[in-house]
Amino acid sequence: MTDFLQLLIVGISQGCIYGLIALGFVLIYKATEMVNFAQGEMMVVGSFIAWTFVVGMGFNFWVGLSAAMVVMAVFGFLLDAAVVRRIIGQPQFSVVILTIGIGIILRAGSGMVWGNQPLTMPTPFPGNSEFFGAVVGNERLAIIGTTVLLIGGLVLFFRCSRWGVALMASSQNQLAALYSGIPVRFVFSAVWAGAAVISTIAGTMLAPITLIEPLNSFLGIKAFAAAVIGGFHSITGAIAGGVLIGVVEAFAGAYLPGARETIGYIIMFAVLIAWPGGLFGRAHRKKV
């Protein structure tokens, strides 16, 4: 029972990381109908920058994280404004290739700047907590807490704020949104900034647990699995998909060690076979 609880909490916290990266995908997809294959790389760059502030320059963890969030927000904004915006309206495939290319550049570039050796990051949440006998690191609980807060904020944002509605409008019809006075370009770039910030948070929260290295960007693929299971349209779906994969992985690691790395993909493939549009997605047909 204790083991079960422990695995569950570890799995949920790991899944929250997947979910947070997936959230970046979903945000960009919801707003701009683009799929950002560089989300994992953005997470790595974000955590490297946070490392530079916290370890390299000796700032307080929170100050460093906030500074990294600001830097990444500017980066995300400029990335869209300078590069991604140019191919709006071209087939989705071009966007996929473009963002894969951006990802390659970011991964290779961060390897050149920060080296390919893993870097360690101190945690502001030392120590462990105990629940009914299960001992869990506080940094894992912090991940879960952060995720819950972020999701709540985002859902409120999309439901209630003018900007959230403007965003949804821009995504459905760029031209119409432009004519109704929404600054579509600014909105799109802001979404990229938001996605970059979220992935920075994910990367920095994860850093004390896994170390920071360019290879971490492959977590992005797991996050894809999460987003696909969640159906790509839904914020809660992304987190649910991430948590599902995280928990299954944790249990597979304990009881089926051989399958730990692939179980997430197997689940995803199975989901896609049964529901080609994802679990929470609505299959849409083209109107003729």
Partner: peptide, 22 residues
Amino acid sequence: SQPGLEPLLFGIILVGFILFEP
């Protein structure tokens, strides 16, 4: 001697093609 040199160049070429010569 940077191991990232080749992927970096390749990534830049790729992005260039997508943007300017799809």
